[in-house]
């Protein structure tokens, strides 16, 4: 009798264990998904250096939730395009037969072109296919941008940054903090001189009426924010 109840208990445990995977309905990482034959993923650039950077097209046989983790770095096969770092965890529910979704991030190589829109690629063999490189926090090259991204978000959410550019402000100052950090020893880096020149150029192109004082305030506010993000990110690191 005792033997039989032990067998029953064992069977019960087996059943319990077989149920467990059903309850652990976690999203699979993008890295896992990309290496799974049942999920086909194609990435296309959107021609942007910050914000919405990729369109991810997929085809699947069964529904699956995937997550693109904050800090994942996408490395283009063609070295003339920028590497891209993902700025926050982004989930997507993939449903058969397929579809597309957008992911956001920041480009890491300021001197290179952003991942281009497919229609802007002349050589179709270059169509942006990206290898997926998961982030290792020990890699100094990538720990700096992710720290800047997190710090910028923290400061912005707590009202510690300006907001001159409205919905584009956080994206802009975060991108400039990343690019300034990567190029600060270079004369043609993403420094304040370049910022002033870029602002002036866009005002001229647009034919916008802006006083020198307004331009000065915008430049100073953006540059203050860039410096504060870098300063606080060093304190937090």
């Amino acid at each position: 009798m005792i033997m039989k109840s032990k067998i029953s208990l064992f069977l019960l445990m087996l059943v319990f264990l077989s149920i467990l995977p059903l309850t652990a309905d976690e999203a699979v990482s993008f890295y896992q998904a990309a290496s799974d034959d049942r999920i086909k993923i194609y990435m296309e650039g959107k021609g942007e250096s910050a914000g919405d950077v990729f369109t991810v097209k997929y085809s699947v046989e069964e529904p699956v939730d995937i997550i693109v983790n904050e800090g994942t770095v996408f490395v283009p096969q063609n070295e003339k395009y920028q590497k891209v770092i993902i700025d926050r965890d982004q989930k997507a529910s993939l449903v058969p037969p397929g579809g597309k979704f957008t992911i956001t991030g920041y480009c890491l190589d300021p001197y290179l072109s952003p991942p281009p829109l497919p229609e802007n690629i002349k050589d179709k063999s270059e169509l942006a296919r990206y290898g997926v490189l998961p982030l290792y926090s020990s890699e100094k090259e990538y720990s700096i941008p992710i720290s800047l991204i997190r710090t910028a978000r923290l400061l912005y959410d707590n009202g510690k940054l300006h907001n001159d550019l409205g919905s584009k402000h956080l994206k802009t100052v975060t991108a400039w903090a990343i690019w300034y950090s990567a190029t600060r020893n270079k004369a043609d880096g993403w420094n304040k001189i370049r910022l002033i020149s870029e602002i002036t150029k866009q005002i001229t192109e647009e034919g916008a009426k802006k006083t020198p004082e307004e331009i000065q305030v915008l430049t100073d506010n953006i540059w203050d924010d860039v410096n504060n993000i870098i300063l606080y990110s060093k304190n937090l690191r």
Binding site: S49, A50, G166, T172, A175, L195, E214
Partner: peptide, 14 residues
């Protein structure tokens, strides 16, 4: 206000 007077500005454009 949702719109700002700098809406035309895109400083992350390459």
């Amino acid at each position: 206000l949702f719109k700002t007077s700098w809406d035309f500005m895109d400083l992350t454009r390459k």
